[in-house]
């Protein structure tokens, strides 16, 4: 696999709120990097050979790249909307392909079995038809009109509701989820999964949220999302192979997997194959 097509993308490498002058050692696509703050409190990222890497700070995180990003980081307009609370959930390391982590985030059919009694519960296992497209103008994968019955859709949800979702993949290792906002039905809660590829089969996952919820404590909001992600983690670490198979013969999708099919197709078309397995082994 080559990193070439993905090398010019932006990746999350740390929380801005936790920057330290001493720096934090981490990695990006196999290269050791150091993420630190300079004398003025600005984020700096240093690559393996001491070179300065591109930096930007957005959505609570420091972003960097081993290459030369040709475009700005994808927009999330809700990040500038007044009244939202922004939640830095913190990193969780997972021994899996960064692409597998994103694909799992795009999946709803696992809710009753993995997030039992929170995001799903038997007998409500059916996945209704929804719409998926690759939006060529913005070069993003979108799934809309996704509906699922959830016993406790959010920390702010009082009981079971049918939740509506929209998924968006604006970058190969990032996804943005728009979800029914229980306290404010006219708005969407925004839940993101920003994935830092440490290696092809190892990643740090940085969930981040922009919610309308004035009642729940910040700690409760963090713990809700950490609970969900940690339930996924034991799945992600036990999928075989660790890399995401792009060979259509390797795994069998159904109609419920249309988002994943589009995501894999988009990765392949764009040559976003760092963390992917192209040929069955």
């Amino acid at each position: 696999m080559t990193a070439q097509a993905m090398i010019d993308e932006w990746y999350p490498v740390g929380l801005f709120s936790q920057l330290q002058p001493a720096g934090r050692q981490t990695a990006l696509m196999g290269e050791p990097i150091v993420v630190s703050s300079d004398a003025d409190g600005n984020a700096t990222v240093t690559g393996g050979n001491g070179r300065s890497l591109p930096v930007l700070v957005r959505y609570g995180h420091v972003w960097s790249s081993l290459g030369q990003p040709k475009k700005a980081l994808f927009p999330i307009p809700e990040a500038d909307q007044p009244g939202r609370r922004f939640v830095d959930v913190g990193a969780v390391r997972v021994r899996c392909s960064p692409l597998r982590a994103v694909e799992n985030f795009l999946d709803i059919a696992h809710f009753p079995f993995v997030h039992t009694d929170i995001l799903g519960a038997e007998p409500h296992t059916e996945v209704q038809n929804y719409k998926v497209e690759i939006r060529e103008d913005v070069d993003e994968v979108w799934a809309t009109q996704v509906k699922f019955y959830q016993p406790q859709a959010a920390k702010s949800a009082a009981g079971g509701i049918t939740t509506e979702y929209m998924y968006r993949v604006p970058a190969p290792t990032c996804s943005v989820l728009y979800k029914t906002c229980p306290p404010r039905p006219s708005e969407w809660d925004v839940i993101t999964l920003f994935v830092q590829p440490l290696a092809e089969d190892l990643c740090d996952v940085w969930p981040w949220m922009a919610l309308f919820d004035d009642d729940t404590s910040m700690t409760d909001l963090i713990h809700f999302q950490q609970t969900i992600f940690l339930q996924d983690r034991s799945i992600l670490e036990n999928q075989i192979p660790r890399l995401l198979p792009l060979d259509p013969g390797m795994e069998i999708p159904t109609r419920a997997d249309l988002t994943s099919i589009a995501y894999r197709r988009w990765l392949k078309r764009r040559n976003y194959t760092y963390g992917a397995q192209l040929v069955a082994q």
Partner: peptide
């Protein structure tokens, strides 16, 4: 707790109503 899954076998397999399958 997160990381320890429910033993789904402790409940019988549910009868599922199908919507627009």
């Amino acid at each position: 707790m997160p990381g320890i899954h429910r033993l789904h076998e402790l409940k019988p397999e549910p009868l599922i109503e199908t919507g627009e399958a």
